[in-house]
């Protein structure tokens, strides 16, 4: 054994992250004949994503899975990913990030001491609420807990809601007591974190496709000989392909479960939502010319 990799993530040992990283562990150990040993640490054992990214950048940690929205705070260009309705849906997001544009974006990480192995599962976030949200008009004045980043806060402001800051851990109680009316969340998480017990409606507004990235410390990556680099890179993409399939399944099951719990699932026409959210783009990208440039590339890729 010549190399050790410790790969961390903050989600549970049932999550897509875990599925991908354990598959990666199997593939790498098998294809390198044990020259690389991989250890996966789930559940935030290596700290929250802010710290994990710091640790990866400084070589304290080999790598792991982090959310694109956490990387935004380091790589300004990534803010483009939290623009509402920048992708038409998760299929388009998978396609663009899996292609040339995605690779270009991963290469941006190099400047910050990281190497991107690939884009992982995409979490399509929609609105769960106590009151029905059939159209964008129903969003007016809705007290909603959103991810506390400008990409989410501004988007939901533009759609007429009142984004309310709230720790995720306090959210269940807050919904139960009506301190907030709604949350934005992916189908698998609304089931896993039991929010199905406190909302009556789930509206597939799909404003954000939350991306995830498999990153390594650049210090580790550049120290690997070329043959191992190839194996690691390929194993990562194979593991991701496997994990994304599992994640889609989890999503399907999540939506089914949501319906089974008696929650009204609505699929509204998204055009009015996208239109209402659009003015937030300028605010979100205001101080990030890098993201503006990247937006043009993504829009070109969408054609």
């Amino acid at each position: 054994q010549d190399y050790e990799m410790t790969l961390a993530h903050v989600l549970s040992d049932q999550s897509a992250y875990q599925v991908i990283l354990t598959r990666f562990e199997e593939l790498v150990e098998e294809r390198t004949d044990g020259r690389i040993a991989v250890e996966v640490q789930c559940c935030g054992q290596a700290g929250n994503e802010t710290r994990a990214i710091q640790a990866i950048r400084t070589g304290v940690l080999t790598g792991g899975f982090v959310g694109g929205s956490s990387l935004e705070n380091v790589v300004p260009a990534y803010r483009v990913l939290s623009l509402p309705y920048v992708f038409s849906g998760s299929d388009e997001a998978y396609e663009i990030l899996g292609g040339e544009t995605g690779r270009e974006m991963l290469d941006l990480l190099g400047e910050y001491g990281m190497y991107g192995l690939g884009w992982g599962a995409i979490f399509e976030r929609s609105v769960g609420s106590r009151t029905p949200v059939a159209s964008v008009e129903d969003m007016q004045g809705l007290k909603i807990r959103v991810l506390p980043t400008p990409g989410f806060v501004e988007a939901y402001k533009a759609m007429g809601t009142q984004p309310t800051p709230m720790a995720y851990g306090e959210l269940f109680m807050a919904l139960q007591n009506g301190v907030v009316d709604a949350l934005e969340i992916s189908p698998d998480a609304i089931v896993a974190d039991k929010f199905v017990e406190v909302v009556d409606h789930y509206t597939l507004t799909k404003a954000h496709q939350s991306t995830t990235v498999f990153v390594l410390s650049d210090a580790f990556w550049s120290g690997l000989p070329d043959d191992l680099k190839t194996i690691v890179q390929e194993a990562a993409l194979d593991a991701i392909a496997h994990g994304v399939e599992a994640h889609r399944e989890l999503n399907r099951a999540g939506l089914e479960q949501v319906r089974a719990m008696g929650i009204t699932v609505t699929e509204p026409d998204l055009a009015p939502f996208a239109e209402a959210a659009r003015p937030s783009w300028d605010v979100i990208l205001a101080d990030a010319p890098e993201a503006q440039a990247l937006l043009e590339t993504i829009q070109a890729a969408r054609q």
Binding site: T50, Q54, R57, T58, S69, E72, N73, V74, P76, Y112, P148, T149, P150, V153, D287
Partner: peptide, 15 residues
């Protein structure tokens, strides 16, 4: 020094 390339999520403050 590391904090120079990090910004806070909400206030966009250099960390």
């Amino acid at each position: 020094e590391l904090g120079r390339t990090e910004t806070s999520p909400v206030m966009n403050l250099e960390k």
